[in-house]
Design a protein around this nucleic acid. Sequence first.
DNA 1: TGCCGCGATCTGTGATCACAGTTAGGCTGT
DNA 2: ACAGCCTAACTGTGATCACAGATCGCGGCA
Lengths: 241, 241
Amino acid sequence: MSNLSSPRSIETAMAIAKIGRLERVTLGERVHAELRDLLIGGELAPGQKMSLRSVAETLGVSIMPVREAVARLVADQSLEVLPNRAVRVPLMTRTRFRELTTVRLAVEGFAAEAAARNRSASDLAAMRRFEEAFLAEAHSPRPRLARAVRANKELHFAVYRATGLPTLVGIIEGLWLKIGPVLNLDLKASPARLRTGGAAEHHRRLVAAIEAGDAAAARDALVGDIKGAAAFIESTGRLLE
Amino acid sequence: MSNLSSPRSIETAMAIAKIGRLERVTLGERVHAELRDLLIGGELAPGQKMSLRSVAETLGVSIMPVREAVARLVADQSLEVLPNRAVRVPLMTRTRFRELTTVRLAVEGFAAEAAARNRSASDLAAMRRFEEAFLAEAHSPRPRLARAVRANKELHFAVYRATGLPTLVGIIEGLWLKIGPVLNLDLKASPARLRTGGAAEHHRRLVAAIEAGDAAAARDALVGDIKGAAAFIESTGRLLE
DNA sequence: TGCCGCGATCTGTGATCACAGTTAGGCTGT
DNA sequence: ACAGCCTAACTGTGATCACAGATCGCGGCA
């Protein structure tokens, strides 16, 4: 398209200026993003083992960027390295699940309030888009589960981003990294929850409250969503201990 | 002392069992802890530059563990690497300072509530110990500032640990990593704040509320503490933008 | 005497090598 | 035929090498 070594037009110059603004994105960062999406999307089950070298080969990079990404995930306990030097997705005990849920209720509940007070029109439009995408899969006779999981995540994070508090969004991402394997793996294992679980209704109330600027109602709706999903997970009896 | 290759007594066997329980602590982890303490303690000023190799030489390790530690700190924005490849403590803008304070009020405020509901007797004893240590420095004619900063941090984290929510403690640690350089550097620059700032009074109310199990009062006291310090920092006019 | 330019040096990032520890499978000995 | 040992392969962690890009200071020209 454009010739980088001899810019001819204003458009090209602007494109180059944009390129100059791109923050340095290292390979390690990209590997981290890849693993993060897999974890949050529930595509890596608790207990699943992996090795630095195998991940490196799969992703077509050397072991170094994988080391960095895995080290970060291990540091915040989204992955763990056993005394045997095996890296795996941590198992989830009922105690730990309840702890994470408690923290989620506090942090994401606050985010819902802040979003209700702060959301812009475009924030709201983004929420609506992902809510619809989620509904489409939930009502489909043969829902595409990966797509439903992604839409659910995007809807939630559209809300969190609407707070205008990027630090808070980062904190919540960390929480989803830890709980995603359990939450979304089980969603995929029991598609019925898409319809019977009240997720769709919670989402509707959440977006409506945020549109109305009703912080308390927004928190209520989000808390209901989290509690509903948590109750379902606990009812499956798949948690340890 | 004991001969590891031929245990002779039950004591020796138990000692070995204990050794076996030690979790793997890598060099990278230790470097991370070192840098974390420096950042939280305000011993690294915003804008301060460092290089992997110089840190490695100072700590007497190779560059690899430093890379891992710095990569983690850069990932959560406690450090930043400029386009010039220089690593430095991020500068603090007023906007970012207010954002961090908002998140701290929500997260640490919740932690104070949870601590009031959950604290054990030994939790309370720990708080008292660090509160006293802080008071000793605050009332001293020539306070040792580093010690005061450390006592303040230990008091706060004694409260946070009393929640029984280690995930929450980790989140708050991340927040202190980002705000520590500004908060505690300025405390050291203006020792007068130790006496005039209402920190001691906020601490007293905080511990009393937690002892009484009064969650709302505990949150109030902690919120007052955070807001007081934030107001002081803003009044110094040292924030950018 | 003042200023520009070029090279030596230093930066983080990625690749490769080295190593101690574990694991699993095959071979040997009975 | 079966059990036990031993070796070969594989693990994460640490060290070293390689490299592209940026910085800074010294030397030479005007």
